[in-house]
Design a protein around this nucleic acid. Sequence first.
RNA 1: GGUAACGUGGCCGAGUGGCUAGGCUCAGCUCUGCAAAAGCUGCUACAGCGGUUCGAAUCCGCUCGUUACCUCCA
Length: 496
Amino acid sequence: MQQNLNLYNTLTRKKEVFEPLHAPFVGMYVCGPTVYGEAHLGHARAYVTFDVLYRYLKYLKYKVRYVRNITDVGHLVNDADEGEDKIAKIAKIQHLEPMEVVQHFTNRFHEDMALLNILPPDIEPRASGHILEQIEMIQEILANGFAYEVNGSVYFDVPAYNKDHNYGKLSGRIIEDLLSNTRETEGQHEKRSPLDFALWKNASPEHIMRWPSPWGNGFPGWHLECSAMSRKYLGQTFDIHGGGLDLMFPHHECEIAQSQASNSKSDEAKYWVHNNMITINGQKMGKSLGNFITLSELFSGNKELLEQAYTPMTVRFFILQAHYRSTLDFSNEALQAARKGYTKLMNGLRVLEKMQYPEEGITPDEKLNEELLKLTEDCFRGLNDDMNTARTIASLFNLLKKINSLYLGQLQISHLTRGTFDTIRETYNTLVLDILGLKEEKLGDQAEMLELILSFYKEAKEAKAYDKVDAIRADLKKQGIVIKDLKTGIDWAYEE
RNA sequence: GGUAACGUGGCCGAGUGGCUAGGCUCAGCUCUGCAAAAGCUGCUACAGCGGUUCGAAUCCGCUCGUUACCUCCA
């Protein structure tokens, strides 16, 4: 089996074989949400993407430390330097403490993530809890000559940095181009260059969120928290830094600059991984465009754009059916199709559970075994090729066809070796449940009751009491269960 | 304006030089009391034009179209 994981590295613009810096340990940092609003479909895509990577790395037996932050300070509403703090703004409107806003949306975020079966990170640091580390990093950058203080604020000196370093190496920007295209924004009078960004901002009297620092009372710049916290928990250089494509510039570019300019002197991460955006009617979904769909709207169907509610697993499957570096277009049709595909995959789990390897009469068919084993390998091939979950799912469907054929007796289980049979079952279960992170959404402990109903159904069927048969079918259908009359007996499946 | 990316069949969405993507939809068949489920079969593709090549959806050029980033965003 091809067991080399290849990842596309934004920093080198190539797919590279993943090799940890200090195997078997892997450090992964993903930019978390700014908790000033409900999580939306775009958040789901980012965190599902890195959840699969996290799960897969663990499956590959790496000891992973996954850090995903909560941004609760420093993220400003407008142009990087003069805007209002996003959280403070909501707090003011709702007459709440900023930390109440933070706590509320952090809780909501966790709820949504749990519904999507996204594993919690190993460490979830908050920016406001790491002011000291951020101040320390600023002091290093100042001491190294890549920052300057003005009126209680500290700015990163991009031109000075760019003399010996390459500001723009991640996003492919050229500093001259950036300079010629910079917009005039307020507050630039303090900055020597429009490209400079804030490391520390002096807090105006009405600014509520403030901390003491060597430069007076203020608050840290947005880009700094990720550099400071990733260094604290993962070291100066770690393996994977992830986030949405929209964070590549300026956020991640600034992170690299900060880490290079501090005593870390590194690009932070060896592999920079970016997921693409969700679009709606071909246009990017985003806060600034106001066309985003929150997860709770999606789960409740409570929005004009939505024809119906979609379950968390439908959403997860929808996301996984595209490659993470492609844009993914939202539509009701696509979600509905995802629902059916997801259900089909779930029914496969149940079929596998029911199948048993026969005790005797084994007559292995070499060609068939080979064919089926190849199908199981294909499933991993997609994953290893830059986490192509779309290909993995396609391969799983190919495998599922064979599983269903075996179940129906169109293919004979006795023609498989024990090893092939076990490999099929293990591959399917592991990929669907553990790595893709899909799970059954219905039933649970009602399975026994269902068995009872099915036994009544069988009796009625044998007595040719078709009225009763149809009635049972109709009732179960209301519960999203369809009855299957097989030659070998009676079974059920989720309605697709 | 600068810099990138993309354009695949009714819809979504993989695929980067020759080998079936896959899902959904639609039609037919098998099975069935009738269905459903499942299996099998079929259907309409690679924006356009030109080039490289024995051979291109895949490489190159041009044209058209769409989008993203350059300002907060996953």
